[in-house]
Design a protein around this nucleic acid. Sequence first.
DNA 1: CAGTGGTCTAGACCACTCC
DNA 2: GAGTGGTCTAGACCACTGG
Lengths: 235, 235
Amino acid sequence: MTAKQDMITQDLAGKIRHGIYTPKSFLPSENELANLYGASRNTVRKSLEDLTSLGLIQKIKGKGSIVLDFSRLSFPISRITTFNELNQSLGLKAETKLLEIKEVKKVPDDFSCDNTEPFIKVKRLRIIDGEPDVLDVDYISTKYVKEISPSVAEHSLYDYFENDLGLKISYAVKDVSVQTVSEELAKMLELDPDRKAVLVKSMVYLEDTSLFQLTASYHNPNRFRFIDFARRSKI
Amino acid sequence: MTAKQDMITQDLAGKIRHGIYTPKSFLPSENELANLYGASRNTVRKSLEDLTSLGLIQKIKGKGSIVLDFSRLSFPISRITTFNELNQSLGLKAETKLLEIKEVKKVPDDFSCDNTEPFIKVKRLRIIDGEPDVLDVDYISTKYVKEISPSVAEHSLYDYFENDLGLKISYAVKDVSVQTVSEELAKMLELDPDRKAVLVKSMVYLEDTSLFQLTASYHNPNRFRFIDFARRSKI
DNA sequence: CAGTGGTCTAGACCACTCC
DNA sequence: GAGTGGTCTAGACCACTGG
């Protein structure tokens, strides 16, 4: 059962993306939307809040909700988005090369993680338009995932976690920095002689706040880019 | 007049940061908080939502709101945070060296911005613990800011914009990439011979969706780092 | 002035967790 | 079953925008 507010959000987001509501125009007022969808004004307001935090609209007091025009370029690191979801939305020709799957007793020290249960390590090279782009090293807790088949690792881990296993991924802490990497890794990513890569370390948590996954992603800096939508917060 | 929900948010955030509510413990329930603050449950829920998106708490259905322990390390690019606010919260010894203030007819082409009014250009080198860290090049629209004095540029632009001019900064689009920069810039930032810097380009907008400011920040990659809190979104 | 979004209330029913 | 958060309603008053 999808909540009424989410259906409204989806519907409005679709109409914005498909140009039924165009950038710089105003959405119908909150009262009109409430009538249109047969919902209370509070429910509509919740939807508009979600669209606002997604960067699709901007609310202006006394005037209305105006459609922004970043819908196409948003390439967010500040939401949790997977390689496959990204490629789909950008329409890129992407390929995943599975390098390693094995169970390990613990996670490397530089994650500063003291969990004691075994993890499944998955190492994958992501290739876009024939060029090596990212090396992903994932560690997935065996508390929640007992086994990962090569075909799942080559396809999409998140699709498997969320749709097949029913896990609820909730939030992540990401640490982005630039590192000089090993010669082996530099060769794999076809880096410049300086061997600098952008390292994104992620710690991913489930709805019950338990640690679920650790990832180190090494990006080729010449092709690394992300676009982020940020709001000024009151605190 | 501060809204009741914001006072509750501030109060709870303070109690979390000061350890009155400790990580891994639960906040009082929504009904208890409503009684405590003399507010309706909806108002309390709005506060808890804000704390959730700030990454201070995590709500668990049927159980309660649990305090997370990232309050210290959050160093967000996904909110709009200024150099001064950051340094204050991290307690760093920072210094700003003003290099240039002048009015320019238009903004460099690589911002892909077609605004025609003049902008004020401000160029500043940020030095942390004696080491050059960031070169900021700002362009501020003369539609909203007529003049910027050197002392303001050396202190804090945002403090001036928000508190003195009463401008309402609302949202920004940020584009992060790694670039090879000029020898002059490389020398200023004391870069490695490869002359690679992390470039953060920002476009900042006001509450009425008008473009207000453009910034190019060149970071020394050896000291560049940001930590981000991300939530998985439904859409 | 009428219309907009911003805040707030008091209630309701549901799904979930834990005992 | 009692308590929790999730969703939703119907109403109220406010501050702001525009003509």
